[in-house]
Design a protein around this nucleic acid. Sequence first.
DNA 1: CTGAAAGCGCTTACAG
DNA 2: CTGAAAGCGCTTACAG
Lengths: 341, 341
Amino acid sequence: MNNKVSIKDIARIANVSVATVSNVINQTGRVSASTINKVNKVIQEQQFVLSASARNLKNKNSHLIAVVVPFLEKGILQDNPFYWELVRGVENGARHHEVQVILQGINEDEDFSFVKQRHLDGLIVVGAYGESSAYQKVLEMGVPCVFLDSYLSNPELYQVNLDDEAGGYLGTKHLIGLGHKTIAVLTGRLEEGGVNYYRYQGYLRALQECGTPGDPELVFEEFSSIQGGYQAAQKIGSSKRKISAIFAFSDVSAMGLIRGLYDIGISVPADISVVGFDDIFYTRYMIPSLTTIQQDVLGKAQTAVNMLLDQINGRVSSTRNVTIPVSLTVRQSTIPYSKKV
Amino acid sequence: MNNKVSIKDIARIANVSVATVSNVINQTGRVSASTINKVNKVIQEQQFVLSASARNLKNKNSHLIAVVVPFLEKGILQDNPFYWELVRGVENGARHHEVQVILQGINEDEDFSFVKQRHLDGLIVVGAYGESSAYQKVLEMGVPCVFLDSYLSNPELYQVNLDDEAGGYLGTKHLIGLGHKTIAVLTGRLEEGGVNYYRYQGYLRALQECGTPGDPELVFEEFSSIQGGYQAAQKIGSSKRKISAIFAFSDVSAMGLIRGLYDIGISVPADISVVGFDDIFYTRYMIPSLTTIQQDVLGKAQTAVNMLLDQINGRVSSTRNVTIPVSLTVRQSTIPYSKKV
DNA sequence: CTGAAAGCGCTTACAG
DNA sequence: CTGAAAGCGCTTACAG
């Protein structure tokens, strides 16, 4: 590393003080045009690069934010490609504002000391549902933070959520419209105040509208993963109910589910219709392509970054709670009940 | 942020010097057991957290590495979920050594000044094929670096690559073994010294072994993405050759391809057999499930991190060039030529 | 075993 | 418009 040229060297070579160099770099204070030129020329020639640590030490900030993602199991990040989409969105939004992003996986017992240690400017926390400890600790630190897909009741918090309830409603409504009567749900952890909870509420609302009561026997709770979906197929196959449609609360689980059904001789959509949720990159290319609830993951992430940067820069934003709309995309995995073979 | 307690405060409260506190924290120098206890107690009580910037400023390091990923188009990271796998592996490997990772997307014209600016300890550069400028600049900086999937000719460089040639060979051999004679290739950018180039070499070697010459008409070069694969289907469908099998050099392109073929009435594997490459998470759940070349992406990433950390910590490793083995996983997308309908 | 002091590379009042 | 100097929070020889 030949990073030895410091602001001091620049000052010496340019025949000015370090204060002036600093002022030129930061465009602060009053500096004459000729001095600015002189200094900038030297900076160019010497290939001077500011030391972030020195600056951070003074300024108590870092131009660094972290995307905090929960681990799937201990020690390894979620494999759902959905997270990649999210992280890409954050990286993109951050870059345009000259902040860099640290990728941080956390356990239940993370103490978030890395935030103080690195003087992180802010945090984007993904999926901190309910009264998780993550949420409490972040609050205590008082660091700027935006929660993504988290549904925290505290109105002070900055949150970006999907309109999950509407998504649950739309997908169910679609199936009802196709004439399906016995509609099962394949959900990830169904805890109150979580993403899946709201999707489930939307599902129930749609059922109620046509006078159908919810039936616990139609709710299948599995890991929100391909494997989880695959396993659910067995259980659904051996259900006593006459299930003609399944609403999976994530595309990955729908993908596993469809394959699982296939392996036990149940064909989608001929025998059972399936609706997914997320609209990840592959859904439209599946055979059959997947009817699903579409969301703008990239946009969601970018919205979150912008809210975070506003906070960091002291721009007051009146809205702390943004809800991203969803829509239904109908493809081949759902057909009218009457057309079932 | 109540990050106001510094090493100085600890020193005052514990009635020792800052030098002693520093020694306790770093377990350096000679400190009596009782002092250690005393200091640690105060550190606990005050919830003291070391300032990374102050330490970095002295030590000229940062316990920070960057995963450098090229942009797909300007301004947004590759959407291939494959990268997520890679990044997860890096995060995982890094965390076990108490270094954090910055996610950095780059353009062709990136000047890598962020490396000096943040005093990054090291870099993991993904896909810097050929004599790309990225590679030159990183070399100039002299920062510890490991190149992933990059095939750089300079033997000084640390590289972790897949045995791409073997992969190309294995997949082709498999198809030949099934009796296929006219085997097309669907590849991403096929430039000399790139990943696809070696896969293609493997393909040619397998063909040569059974006396078949390579046929340029059988090489379809498209973006290595679902869309690229989908588009390729049209061209393949209208080829004059009697193609009975296609070897796609990435799973994502195979996925798009299969759907594209389906849409023009060509069924896999009944009409055409398809082999993929990578074995991403979804391949075994596809219908038909995908025969593909398997690689351990997570392991690959972890190997790279370990090599990087060895370099950073001055541990000399004799091997600078690691090749990760591949294997063939046969599934449903390939069938014997004789069983074609 | 312990401490006083210099210094890492910046920024920021404060003088001039 | 420009500069001297203090200080951010650490680490590290060097004395003792």
